[in-house]
Amino acid sequence: MLWQLFFVFLKIGCISFGGGYAIIALIQREVVGAGWMEGQQFQELVALAGMAPGSIATNTATLIGYSQMGIPGAAMATIGIILPSLLIVILFASIFLRLQGNSWVRASFYGLRPIITGLIMYAAIHFAAGGTNRSLLNWSTLGMVIICAGCLLAVLKFKIHPFAVILLSAVAGIVLF
């Protein structure tokens, strides 16, 4: 069972491009298909995983491993989902650092970097849209915009540490909402 957990998440780890929410559906298919838990229980675990820091996919793996086999299961599932990306990043990084001077590698990164920038912008839009209700003009949305603008100012102009910004926003959230 421990190895089964490891291999299922190893497989998911190999194809988890883009990370995060994209692969939740994939994990659900594997986990519910294997009869480890019901869809309802899975949804509750995902909600819990989203509340913790870190990648939601990795957190979900940890919680599923824990629910099946306790702490050893959690460790195995987490290692399984992390291992493929660790190996692939090491491979990419070694190739990149060795060929850094090559003009074709430079040209590829010239094209890749703006696309990654686009991905990050999309992530911001996607994440912002996830936090607002359907109606745009209400107190909740306005509060979110105020907090967001305040955070931008704090990080970019006053160089406040991102972690402090997150804590302050939690306090602001309690005050505003």
Binding site: M51, F127, M144, C148, G150, L152, A170, V171, L176
Partner: peptide, 23 residues
Amino acid sequence: EAALKGVHAAVVALIIVAAYKVG
């Protein structure tokens, strides 16, 4: 829930900063 909403807004801001820095 209110605190998590605040954190959510901060996360959006941090992602925007990341886009700006990488951009």
